[in-house]
């Protein structure tokens, strides 16, 4: 895990890219829709959430690629260590380098989109709970396409439909807080998704990796 982080930190642009992408996508909306604060504030939860979702997917197909190419993935699979645990560590480090910075960057973007200040807390909280699930589900897709040449587009096709519940409740939480309602319900459901994905997704990812490598 520590090794993962150190390796990733060395490839600084790899983890800077999703952040820049996140910023860019969000900036496109005022240009495309309208710079009017009232309208932007209303659609800001959706914009930030969709952008965050796409940004987490951006680097996802590289999650297992380098390990696959240098053969270390194969060693992990034949090795005695439980794969699901190693995968969890890998996904966690991926999240620390994408999901967490995205969450931290979100208030700045919310400010630019004139989201009312009262909703910042819920926005960050929803991203904090929601993005780990995105990473965990994305890892299943990444494991399925790891051996394929043009896996990136395929990965998006496979994973995006599975992201829909998280998107609905994530942006739903922020919208609810915008309307002055409690968002605890939606946040609790996001938490439940995470609690489901945390044990199950690494199992599916491990199975997918075995297939991608052993055939």
């Amino acid at each position: 895990m520590y090794r993962e982080l150190r390796l990733a930190a060395r490839r600084i642009f790899d983890w800077l890219n999703p952040l820049v992408f996140f910023l860019l996508v969000v900036c496109l909306f005022p240009l495309a829709v309208s710079p009017e604060p009232a309208l932007l504030g209303k659609i800001a939860p959706g914009i930030v959430w969709v952008a965050a979702l796409l940004a987490t997917l951006l680097g996802m197909d590289g999650l297992f690629r380098s390990d696959f190419e240098d053969g270390s993935l194969e060693q992990i699979i034949v090795g005695s260590q439980p794969i699901a645990l190693l995968i969890s560590a890998k996904v966690l480090s991926y999240w620390l380098l994408t999901g967490l910075p995205l969450t931290l960057l979100a208030p700045l973007l919310a400010l630019m989109l004139s989201l009312p200040v009262g909703s910042y807390e819920v926005l960050c909280l929803s991203l904090l709970i929601g993005t780990p699930s995105l990473c965990l589900i994305g890892a299943i897709g990444a494991a399925l396409v790891v051996g394929l040449r043009r896996g990136g587009v395929l990965l998006v096709l496979l994973v995006l439909p599975l992201y829909i519940p998280i998107l609905i409740f994530g942006s739903g939480a922020v919208t609810a807080s915008l309307q002055g309602m409690e968002a605890t319900g939606q946040l609790a459901i996001l938490g439940a998704f995470l609690a489901l994905a945390l044990p199950l997704a690494p199992i599916a990812t491990a199975a997918a990796l075995r297939i991608s490598i052993n055939g």
Partner: peptide, 30 residues
């Protein structure tokens, strides 16, 4: 798409089976 992207028949079958199972778990949630 996954089925047709993987050249090896057995690998394609297994990979898409995993995707289908993940999808079925997700379906009620969706």
């Amino acid at each position: 798409a996954l089925n047709s992207a993987i050249g090896d028949r057995q690998m394609a079958a297994k990979a898409s089976a995993i995707l289908a199972i993940v999808g079925v778990i997700n379906l009620p949630i969706i």
